[in-house]
Design a protein around this nucleic acid. Structure first.
Lengths: 185, 185
DNA sequence: CTCCGTCCGTACCAATCAGTACATTACATA
DNA sequence: TATGTAATGTACTGATTGGTACGGACGGAG
């Protein structure tokens, strides 16, 4: 028994994929065990709070990634336009051109939202605000920047839904191309 | 026992709300019984195929509504611009300004998609095509019409995700206002 | 009034659910 | 090499899952 010693951090990516594909309710412990390669012993050792704690950890992990790769650059980079362009590129890479869906978006729909209300709301609010900041620095009037940033965030989510619904990643690619134009980068 | 005699059609709205709020996996028979007021006997009498058949019936019911209220008017109305404007109004009403989420969108994300692949893809494909038709008749070049219609459909879905995520229906309202401008109605 | 198919409530089923308990193993440190 | 803690597998729990079986109640047709 007890072959390899894991660390909590190591299983977060696999855990994220499970929640991404099955949602919170649909992610059974059986699936989680299979996909992480960990038994219940390890799982409850790393996440004493069970599934809820796993989901919280996944959300925090994702949040950290977006903060580092997207939000902070949008807020702080000298060249705001370049930061916006990089945001679109990073978004395309992260969501694998629409092949991957947004965990936070999945949680937002459905009853699950209430259990993770703050994390869900915060993820989107910070994205919207960081992008608005960058747009203002790129020369857009504040009002217009707020409108554009909200539109961009929601367009990305909608593109994920639609491209997955019709099973055509070109939908996502086209949506990002339109955003490039609209955001002027 | 056996107080009131129901008809299958009568329970579809309640059934739709259950799937809307909980998704397919999350909608347990217990919840369905509570919300429809029907016991298992009735449920399996009307839907011998169980949950899967209930979901199929709900999707068909929704599809019928959109066909009658949105797609056909978009394709056939004399005044294409007026039909587009009415689409936006109907959409706002149907989704209760963002308070209600899209069942088909919920199914599209998540593993559920595969089980109802055709219905999910068809719903969005027909919406996109009907709107494109209307836009062409309203004077847009075919290419631009295709682009605009895809953008509109995906914007609505994204607006539902975002407005529910940040719990602010103003997001949905603003998104529809932007669409009004973009679609020229 | 009788009868029959539709409708319905309840008891039941095996399977699976999330979670707990605990003994055993791995491993860093001393 | 000894020892304590972290990590792990397994067996178990009670609750809930979707689904079936079936007997009884309903209401229209005759």
């Amino acid at each position: 028994m007890a072959k390899i010693v894991h660390e909590r951090e190591d299983v977060l990516p696999a855990l994220g994929e499970v929640f991404r594909e099955h949602g919170f309710e649909g992610a059974s412990l059986a699936i989680i065990q299979a996909r992480t390669g960990l038994g219940k012993g390890s799982l409850y050792h790393f996440f004493p709070g069970g599934k809820a704690e796993m989901a919280k950890a996944v959300l925090a992990h994702i949040d950290r990634w977006f903060e580092d790769e997207i939000y902070r650059p949008l807020r702080e980079d000298e060249d705001a336009r370049a930061a916006i362009a990089r945001m679109l590129a990073s978004t395309d890479a992260y969501f694998r051109s629409g092949n991957r869906v947004c965990v936070v978006g999945v949680f937002a729909l459905g009853e699950t939202r209430e259990r993770f209300a703050f994390a869900v709301a915060d993820y989107f609010a910070r994205w919207r605000e960081a992008l608005r900041d960058a747009l203002v620095r790129a020369g857009h009037p504040p009002e217009e920047a707020a409108d554009l940033s909200e539109d961009a965030v929601l367009t990305i989510q909608g593109a994920l839904v639609l491209s997955r619904a019709v099973k055509d990643t070109a939908v996502f690619t086209r949506a990002l191309a339109r955003l490039k134009t609209r955001l002027g980068v």
